[in-house]
């Protein structure tokens, strides 16, 4: 379980998060939805302990994020792998660094995602690089999985492969996943919990199925309604 209590975060004069309370239940796949600059990445970075809140507290399984870093696998939006690495080298680095690295899972996903260990990270397509990043994150048996914009700028077919890999690798109950994205379409049937954020404030958070039942709307439709008065990004 991840809990945000009255969390605020500023970067200079920009208010990234403004007193937010968020609850990410244990064992759920949560969609973190909002336009660019809404505060999605800030939430991710607070959970990983890369950034600290100015006010309020963030708890990962009952403790401060910094103490729980080994429990969290994080896929950042930016390319964080050395372009001269072969995929195999990146995997060796990760396996040495994280005790929860699962070699057999890595091998399984490698073929599921149709990647080759000899690929040089800087020389492959954007879609393949996205898959490579995902492979390295999913090969850890981390109880918390944070994926920041895993679909951005990636073609439809590859998006589908990524969504399939997420379902394939998901361990019910034990794993909590947070996916931030614009492409709600892609994750409609993938998430069971949703958090809508805009300009650093939480507009809505609920169980996805409850929302559909209550509103007879898809998550995309709900998002449009929730953000109607907000930015034009949606």
């Amino acid at each position: 379980m991840i809990e945000f209590r009255q969390v605020s975060k500023r970067f200079g004069s920009v208010v990234a998060l403004d007193g937010v309370d968020i609850h990410f239940p244990q064992g759920s796949i949560c969609g973190l939805f909002g336009p660019n600059g809404a505060g999605k990445s800030t939430i991710m970075k607070l959970i990983t302990g890369i950034n600290y809140p100015d006010q309020g507290e963030v708890m990962v399984r009952g403790a401060a994020p910094k103490a729980q870093r080994q429990l969290v696998a994080y896929l950042p939006e930016v390319d964080h792998l050395y372009p001269w690495w072969k995929l195999a080298q990146a995997a060796r680095f990760m396996s040495a660094f994280y005790p929860d690295w699962d070699e057999s899972r890595y091998k399984g996903l490698l073929s599921f995602l149709q990647l080759d260990e000899q690929m040089v990270i800087g020389k492959i397509s954007k879609g393949q690089r996205a898959k490579a990043k995902l492979l390295l994150v999913l090969s850890r048996r981390a109880p918390y999985l944070l994926l920041d914009e895993p679909f951005s700028g990636i073609d439809l077919l590859t998006r589908e492969e990524i969504a399939n890999a997420l379902i394939e690798g998901y361990r019910e109950g034990e794993q909590t996943m947070i996916i931030s994205t614009h492409e709600i379409d892609e994750v409609e049937s993938l998430v069971d919990r949703v958090v809508f954020i805009e300009q650093g404030r939480i507009q809505l958070q609920d169980d996805a199925e409850q929302l559909r039942l209550k509103r007879n709307q898809s998550l995309v439709e709900i998002m449009k309604e929730v953000f109607r008065n907000g930015s034009q990004q949606v």
Binding site: N164, I167, E172, L190, V191, E209
Partner: peptide, 13 residues
């Protein structure tokens, strides 16, 4: 869940 590409928690439900 893999066949219909749906959240395993939803299928469990």
């Amino acid at each position: 869940a893999q066949m219909v590409k749906v959240n395993p928690n939803t299928v469990q439900r």
